[in-house]
Write a protein that binds this DNA or RNA. Structure first.
Length: 151
DNA sequence: TAGGCCATCTGGTCCT
DNA sequence: AGGACCAGATGGCCTA
């Protein structure tokens, strides 16, 4: 997945930074110090940007782990992950609202106890939910982002 | 082979 | 001044 657009992409950025500082790379052997500094700053900025994007991707991976994902074969794209997270939050929010309503109507006590089992909870948060997956898939898939207003 | 997704580079802008 | 953030450009990989 690496780009070959620039030679600098194929080497360790910190190493390149130090090489650049020596003026031996990128034809800068006889370049003025200003160009050298500029080039060095650019490489440092590239390295920072890579780290930033890696941090962003780590966050996406963590989000993927807590968001429902059926179809074990393919991981969600970034866009899909965000859409799924939105739908998931909305679904949970609705479930919460319903539970509040039940409680206020004093019907909550009749709510099936198994809804509070830890396993049932983890099935939502975990990777796959082998049991009852069809039902759950239908439930969550019915929560499409376009059905909600984003605050 | 076209299209989707992604990583990386890059220059601009904003913030501290 | 330098770092963080962003968006556009570019090219590689993968799949239908």
């Amino acid at each position: 997945m690496k780009s070959c657009k620039s030679n600098s992409a194929d080497s360790d950025p910190e190493e390149l930074e130090s090489q650049c500082a020596g003026g031996k790379e990128f034809g800068l052997t006889c370049a003025p110090e200003r160009m050298e500094n500029s080039s060095r700053r650019r490489l440092a900025a590239n390295a920072r940007e890579r780290r930033r994007m890696q941090g962003l991707n780590t966050a996406f991976d963590r989000l993927r782990k807590v968001v429902p994902q059926w179809g074990q074969d393919k991981k969600l794209s970034k866009y899909e992950t965000l859409q799924m997270a939105l739908s998931y939050i909305m679904a949970l929010n609705r479930i919460l609202s319903e539970s509040e309503r039940y409680r206020s109507e004093r019907e909550w006590i009749n709510f099936p106890y198994e809804h509070f089992q830890p396993d049932a909870c983890c099935a939502y948060v975990g990777q796959k939910y082998s049991m009852d997956s069809d039902h759950y898939t239908q439930r969550i898939e019915s929560y499409q982002p376009e059905h909600f207003q984003v605050a």
